[in-house]
Amino acid sequence: MLEGKVKWFNSEKGFGFIEVEGQDDVFVHFSAIQGEGFKTLEEGQAVSAEIVEGNRGPQAANVTKEA
């Protein structure tokens, strides 16, 4: 698991990027966000996630919002 913060997230398109210190930004799709209801993230929000290899490079999986 790694910790980072949301760089930006487009709720209409359902994707965005997470900033991780010392690494390239990581793509995040709404389907990777854990929880019930409408899955979205806010800019600057702290999150933790796993990194997996997607079709277009590294992407976030099992994204959870930090308190």
Rank of each mutant, 00 (worst) to 15 (best):
E42F: 14
G4C: 08
G54C: 10
K65H: 08
K7Q: 05
R56W: 15
S48V: 12
F38P: 09
V28M: 04
K13N: 06
N62W: 11
K13P: 02
F27K: 01
G35K: 05
E3C: 15
K7L: 06
A67C: 13
G14L: 01
F15R: 00
Q23T: 09
G4Y: 06
Q23S: 11
K65I: 14
V26Y: 04
N62H: 10
E43S: 14
E66M: 15
F17V: 08
A67G: 12
G14F: 03
V6E: 04
A67M: 12
L41F: 04
K7F: 05
A32H: 06
T40H: 08
D24F: 11
F30D: 02
A60D: 03
A32P: 02
N55T: 14
Q34K: 13
G14R: 00
V47N: 01
V26G: 01
A49N: 02
A60V: 05
G44W: 04
G4R: 00
E66A: 14
I33W: 03
E21Q: 12
E43W: 13
E42R: 14
H29Y: 05
F15E: 03
K39G: 04
T64L: 12
Q23K: 12
A32L: 02
Q59P: 03
D25V: 08
N55C: 15
E19K: 11
V47F: 01
Q45D: 12
G35P: 02
G37R: 01
A32S: 09
G37F: 06
K7R: 08
E66G: 14
G16H: 01
N62L: 10
K39N: 05
A67R: 09
Q34G: 08
A32N: 08
Q45T: 09
E21G: 08
Q34A: 11
K65W: 10
F9T: 01
D25L: 10
G22F: 07
S31G: 06
S48W: 15
W8L: 00
K7G: 04
G16I: 03
T40I: 08
Q23F: 15
D24I: 12
G35Y: 06
G22S: 05
E43K: 15
G4W: 07
D25Q: 06
A61E: 08
E50R: 10
A32G: 08
F38A: 07
T40D: 07
H29N: 02
R56F: 12
F17E: 01
G57Q: 04
V52R: 09
I33V: 09
K39T: 05
R56E: 06
G54W: 07
L2D: 04
I51M: 08
T40L: 07
H29M: 04
E19G: 09
E19W: 10
I51H: 03
K7T: 07
V28E: 02
I18E: 00
S48T: 14
R56M: 09
E12T: 13
G22W: 05
G54K: 06
E19C: 14
S11T: 12
A46Y: 14
G4K: 00
P58N: 08
F38T: 06
V52L: 08
K39A: 06
A60T: 03
M1Y: 12
I51N: 02
F30Q: 04
L41K: 01
F9W: 15
G4P: 00
E12Q: 14
V47L: 03
I51E: 02
M1Q: 11
E42T: 13
E36N: 11
V26C: 06
T40W: 12
K13I: 08
F15N: 03
G14Q: 02
G54H: 07
G35M: 13
M1T: 13
T40E: 06
A67W: 12
E3Q: 15
I18Q: 00
G14D: 01
F30T: 04
E50A: 11
V63I: 06
V47E: 03
W8A: 00
G57S: 07
E12W: 12
E53K: 13
I51T: 04
A46Q: 13
A61R: 09
S11C: 14
Q23V: 09
F17M: 08
E12M: 12
S48K: 15
Q45I: 09
A49Q: 03
E53I: 15
F38R: 07
V47K: 00
E43N: 13
N62P: 01
F9H: 02
D24H: 12
Q45S: 07
E50C: 13
K39P: 05
D25N: 08
A60L: 04
S11W: 11
G44I: 02
A60Q: 01
V6F: 03
G22A: 05
P58V: 09
D25G: 04
L2R: 11
T40Q: 07
Q23M: 14
G57V: 03
F30L: 05
G14M: 01
K39H: 06
V20C: 08
V28Q: 01
R56K: 10
H29T: 02
Q34R: 11
E42V: 14
E21H: 11
S31P: 02
F30W: 15
F30M: 05
F17R: 02
E3F: 15
V52F: 09
V63N: 01
Q23W: 14
E42N: 11
V52N: 06
E36S: 13
F9I: 02
N10P: 00
K7N: 05
F30S: 05
S48H: 14
E53H: 13
Q34I: 14
E53T: 13
F38Y: 12
V52G: 05
V6G: 03
A46H: 14
F30H: 08
G37A: 05
E19S: 13
A61S: 11
D25H: 07
E53P: 12
V52C: 11
N62F: 12
D24Y: 11
V26P: 00
I33Y: 03
E50D: 10
I33R: 00
T64C: 11
M1N: 10
E50L: 14
D25C: 11
E12D: 11
N10K: 07
